[in-house]
């Protein structure tokens, strides 16, 4: 069964169309990567899927059409989002973030600390004062403790120190054991290491699709993403 099936998705901002007729599939329990240069429409794709942008086309989550639903209704059905920027609520503590995400009152902090022990020391700290890597950890922990069926990750390793990237990659691998992941990534090494299938987005349309290893070995990924 597919966790996500997107058919003929068209989306944008106001009168400006960014994505045109995009279709993709994320099988349950797999990591699928979407790659593309800056401005290709990667974040627009994720914002459309999670219900934050109006769009045309079909979005089916675990067999249910969700394209007419609002963001909170889609997230209640198991799709969660790890944003690239603005991933925390200013003014809320780390513990409060985990409390919001947890499906039951007690499970939040404990599960998150098992994943990222550093969060134990940060529980009472305002989340906006965390480092970039810690914010990503918090965001991934939030996503996982909400027991999702599909996680949308928007460039989770972008701007993060190399030593933290490996820790985040382990966390994403762990996440993939619990839910399907749609990973938006510019870093080819990270995408190849984590995902089984890949799409390349250019000017709002997919121009490459296939098994990630095959895309990588053919050199088409490097060619498409070269600056």
């Amino acid at each position: 069964m597919n966790a996500l099936e997107v058919t003929a998705l068209t989306s944008g901002y106001g009168t400006s169309t960014v994505l045109r007729n995009v279709s993709l599939t994320v099988p349950a329990g797999e990591v699928v990567a979407v790659m593309g240069r800056n401005g290709a429409g990667k974040t627009t794709l994720l914002r459309s899927l999670i219900g934050l942008l109006p769009h045309e086309g079909s979005v089916v989550l675990n067999g249910t059409e969700v394209s007419e639903l609002k963001g909170h209704q889609i997230s209640q059905r198991g799709m969660v989002w790890v944003p690239q920027d603005d991933s925390v609520f200013p003014g809320l503590t780390v513990k409060e973030h985990l409390s919001i995400a947890a499906r039951d009152e007690d499970s939040g902090a404990t599960s998150a600390i098992e994943m990222f022990p550093i969060l134990q020391e940060r529980l009472t700290q305002q989340a906006q004062t965390l480092s970039g890597g810690e914010k990503k950890m918090l965001s991934i922990a939030q996503a996982l403790i909400s027991r999702p069926s599909l996680i949308l990750m928007d460039e989770p390793t972008e701007g993060i120190a190399p030593v933290v990237v490996s820790e985040l990659m382990l966390a994403i691998e762990a996440a993939a054991n619990k839910a399907a992941v749609l990973l938006v990534e510019q870093n080819i090494d990270v995408a190849v290491a984590l995902s089984t299938h890949g799409y390349v987005l250019e000017h709002g349309s997919f121009v490459e699709e296939g098994a990630m290893q095959e895309l990588h070995e053919s050199g088409r990924l490097e060619e498409r993403l070269a600056i």
Partner: peptide, 22 residues
């Protein structure tokens, strides 16, 4: 109150953690 503060801080992000921001 927690959901209200989250909504005020970032309504879009609140929607993605199951909060009805509207």
């Amino acid at each position: 109150g927690l959901h209200a503060r989250a909504t005020i801080a970032n309504p879009d992000l609140a929607e993605t953690v199951r909060i009805n921001a509207d």
